[in-house]
């Protein structure tokens, strides 16, 4: 299978690979997650009930609360975090939280990332180059 390559803005964190969890909805750790169970807990969220732990989480924009910055660090300390977060548009909170926690974050892609990647796709993320690779051959 040929890998699909998507170019984003240079991101932060380490290169990671994993299975994608995708929705054209937005993201806030405070508003949307049950961080103890590691699932989306806001009933109105498109991923309600889904586990995000160790997934490459792909959503539209970061929204709302400042708390996400501390929360990424807390989630990673319990190994209950996604492997990476890919957004069409991050906001400062997500970026600040990722920088503090050493979390992998990318945004600003050539195309709507939530339409390009499908849930279950195997994805490789390279923050230094801003490149996302989709496909069974991705490492």
């Amino acid at each position: 299978m040929t890998n699909v390559v998507i170019q984003g803005h240079v991101g932060m964190g380490n290169p990671v690979s994993g299975k994608a969890l995708v929705a054209h909805d937005n993201f806030s750790a405070r508003y949307d997650l049950d961080r103890i169970k590691g699932v989306f807990s806001r009933p109105a969220h498109a991923l309600y009930g889904e586990s995000y732990v160790n997934k490459i989480l792909i959503l539209n924009i970061a929204k709302g609360g400042v708390a996400t910055a501390w929360m990424l660090h807390e989630m990673m300390s319990r190994e209950m975090a996604p492997k990476a977060l890919l957004l069409n548009y991050a906001n400062p909170i997500i970026a600040q939280g990722a920088a503090f926690a050493g979390f992998t974050l990318l945004d600003r892609f050539e195309h709507d990332i939530t339409q390009t990647v499908k849930t279950g796709d195997q994805v490789h993320v390279d923050p230094a180059s801003g490149i996302v690779m989709i496909g069974s051959n991705s490492v």
């Binding site: 400042v66 501390w70 920088a99």
Partner: peptide
């Protein structure tokens, strides 16, 4: 800008923030 907890703390410790947004 929105300054999350770790970032606002970093600003408090350095007296500055990155000029963006």
């Amino acid at each position: 800008n929105y300054e999350g907890g770790p970032s606002a703390l970093a600003s408090a410790m350095t007296g500055r923030t990155a000029r963006y947004g």
